[in-house]
Design a protein around this nucleic acid. Structure first.
Lengths: 196, 196
DNA sequence: GTCTATATTCCGATAGAC
DNA sequence: GTCTATCGGAATATAGAC
């Protein structure tokens, strides 16, 4: 591949960060340019319009999902567990691109909606293939969706970075990964035909 | 209660509709006023600023959640099943208020984030009380969150209005309610201590 | 490729008539 | 209570210098 224009990636990173941390309203060309360390004119050289910027982010998501799906398919723990585990927000590049694109989709950016739907479709295909039960696969998908919904809602992204002992049992937002994976395993087991 | 200014409610309805159908960016005072059939000046008489409008929607959500939680607590099918069932978008007033508020929360409206968190907290308390297992309760919450995430993503809200027979099994977005409730029932059963 | 203007449109809010 | 008119600021996009 070509040397890859560094400025383009920097602009995309900045756009992503502002979307994740401050929402769509704040992600103006001015703000993105400043955060990327270029002028507005410079930004508009790489992305001719705001729509082009949105398109750029969508393409980045498509690319990142491609490698994620490959990893998922080969995951030793199984695609379902892998999917649930990686749906818990950790601030990975993929996480951030997903949240940023979700923010755009909540606006009226059709292309963001399209790319997110296709992402879900690709995940689902791999999961349903491995659990052999469409109902369970859809439930697993929903659990992952729920984790992203919570990530997008909380904003500060602190789930388990603090090693505090007082994790309140009554806080629905504080999801424990091992606990959840246990539930998922039970779920899959309870639905797997015991014909062997 | 006082006669309840009809115009205020109409404005709030319009704000909600635009948020749900076109997103936060489109929900300008101009657009809301036009959709509500009043002038911008008229709107600003009832809600002195955009922030006041946001606050008004948050208060509406708080009120509607209050009655929802009561209904949920008394539901014959049990709070968990009730919660999952009503998390599937049907276009009810509560559904619309939740989606609208979620749209605001994805922006940087702190009050919307706060009211949504408190909503989840209240739901969770009722659910955990009935299933007696915090892990299951959290998983159930996530399933509901996932349903709302999907509703917010699809935008056209068509899940089951069409009586088409060709519901593709490979479409993760097309959730069948009975199927999902079956999974939830299995889940609760698999985790309920059989000590009786 | 990147910059500094500048044109244009639009949004939120205020003032004041009716 | 509801309206019209308008100000000030911000956002997208363009033009053209370096």
């Amino acid at each position: 591949m070509p040397p890859a224009p560094a400025a383009r990636e920097k602009v995309l990173d900045a756009f992503e960060s502002i979307l994740v941390e401050h929402g769509e309203r704040t992600a103006t060309l001015d703000a993105v340019a400043e955060s990327a360390g270029v002028s507005k004119g410079g930004l508009l050289y790489h992305f001719g319009s705001k729509q082009a910027l949105v398109e750029g982010l969508c393409e980045r998501l498509t690319a990142r999902i491609g490698s994620d799906v490959e990893t998922m398919r080969a995951a030793p723990e199984g695609p379902a567990a892998f999917y649930v585990r990686t749906s818990l927000y950790t601030g990975s590049p993929l996480d951030r691109t997903i949240i940023a694109t979700s923010r755009l989709a909540q606006g009226s950016y059709r292309s963001a909606v399209r790319v997110l739907r296709s992402m879900r479709q690709r995940w689902f295909e791999v999961i349903v293939e491995s659990v052999e039960d469409a109902a369970v696969a859809r439930a697993v998908m929903l659990l992952g969706d729920g984790l992203y919904y919570n990530a997008a809602l909380n904003g500060d992204w602190i789930h388990d970075v603090t090693g505090d002992t007082g994790t309140s049992v009554t806080d629905p937002a504080r999801v424990d990964l091992d606990e959840l994976l246990g539930v998922v395993a039970d779920l899959i087991r309870s639905r797997t035909p015991a014909d062997r």
